[in-house]
Design a protein around this nucleic acid. Structure first.
Lengths: 218, 218
DNA sequence: TAGATTGTTAATCGATTAACAATC
DNA sequence: TAGATTGTTAATCGATTAACAATC
């Protein structure tokens, strides 16, 4: 009766978890054995109570008044929580600069994440390898997603072909999509999606800068 | 007295603006002259009232009951709002795959955004050009940011050098940072920052997938 | 006119923060 | 013990959604 965890965790919390994990590992590497929520909060510029709540949501043991959380256990719990030991695999469609960047990105491994293959419609690209991973023809998306048994698909194609790619992925059994193409994809309700519109992020940042500059004062 | 706009707009709204803009342009290209908030909402999977509020926040004229908003005016207002005509310039430090991807990204232009130069500490990279843009030695960040008069800096270096790069940028007059390095940067309060942790996003997506799968049912 | 669509005011929802008693 | 740190309950805050009167 003491493993009763909240059934679901807020999206924002989830987003923060990998960041905690990274920091926890860094502390462990520095030889620490315990960490307090307050310390972590200071390190990351977050609110202490927020950190405490987040940690409590994943930790299998209670924190220790006076000394905080045992690092080792906390790291293990968080890795379990994030499924770091589950070898979460994905494929990426669209092997342009961005697709290449993702295929070569080293930080994924630390979370048990890996992109196992790529697809591209350009016959000059299909058949090559990037960072040791094979690139297949885009016509084989459905077939190979099914065969590989992957459930996460990454879309880094131009907007014009993204919906088509997405449909092919879904047919192949993809359940979660990380979409970098700047458009709204039509998908069934039970498919999970994260949209990563780089131009929109950039524009929003520049908009905030303007807003601050134009503000009378603070 | 009819240009009284809310002084500030929510971060989330701001994030949506570029998406509206993109869609509005598409509608214009399709020959439409007016659009209703309800239609846009349907198109983008958002709540109609939310869209209405967002549009009202930037539109200089009221929407028209019965027919909606005039596309032309709305596009113009939104471009003004986002500063699309202001040629917002940025530099990127770290010309690896990701830096290259951003330097070559075509969608920025539509929002008046451009990355005008890159920096890299690798002497083999400094001195080259990417997508027609010069890459300079990382030792010249402070000097050239100042000389170019740019206010937005993009960090795509490894985490280990990101803080150093950030400091150099701030000295060079950078006011807003788009950070892709997976770490928490220490910056003064008046500097605007957007953190774009790719591994964290990926991990969070995979976490949501797990959570859905593990859920008893819905 | 009738009906679609608007803008606005109030209610809801969800996440963050504050307050505080409990504990090593 | 005293004090740092915890977990929990209540207050705040901000964004989204609902309700509805106003308008072309």
């Amino acid at each position: 009766m003491d493993d009763a965890k909240p059934l679901s965790i807020s999206r924002q919390s989830l987003q923060r978890m990998p960041i905690y994990l990274e920091n926890l590992k860094k502390l462990r590497a520095a030889g620490k054995s315990h960490v307090s929520a307050a310390f972590l909060a200071g390190e990351l510029g977050l609110h202490p109570v927020q950190v405490r709540k987040d940690l409590a949501a994943v930790s299998s043991v209670d924190g220790n008044p006076r000394i905080g959380f045992a690092l080792a256990g906390l790291i293990e719990d968080m890795e379990d929580f994030l499924g770091c030991n589950n070898a979460n695999e994905a494929v990426v469609v669209g092997v342009g600069n961005l697709g290449r960047a993702l295929l070569s990105y080293k930080n994924f491994a630390g979370y048990g994440l890996s992109i196992i293959a790529g697809f591209d419609s350009d016959p000059a690209v299909a058949g090559t390898t990037v960072h040791g991973k094979e690139i297949f023809s885009a016509s084989r998306i459905t077939e190979l997603c099914g065969r590989f048994g992957v459930h996460i698909g990454i879309i880094t194609t131009p907007a014009s072909s993204a919906q088509e790619v997405c449909d092919a992925m879904l047919l192949g059994g993809i359940k979660a999509i990380w979409n970098f193409a700047p458009l709204h994809l039509n998908i069934p309700d039970d498919i999970i999606i994260t949209n990563e519109n780089l131009a929109a992020s950039f524009a929003a940042l520049s908009g905030r800068l303007r807003q601050q500059r134009d503000a009378p004062k603070l």
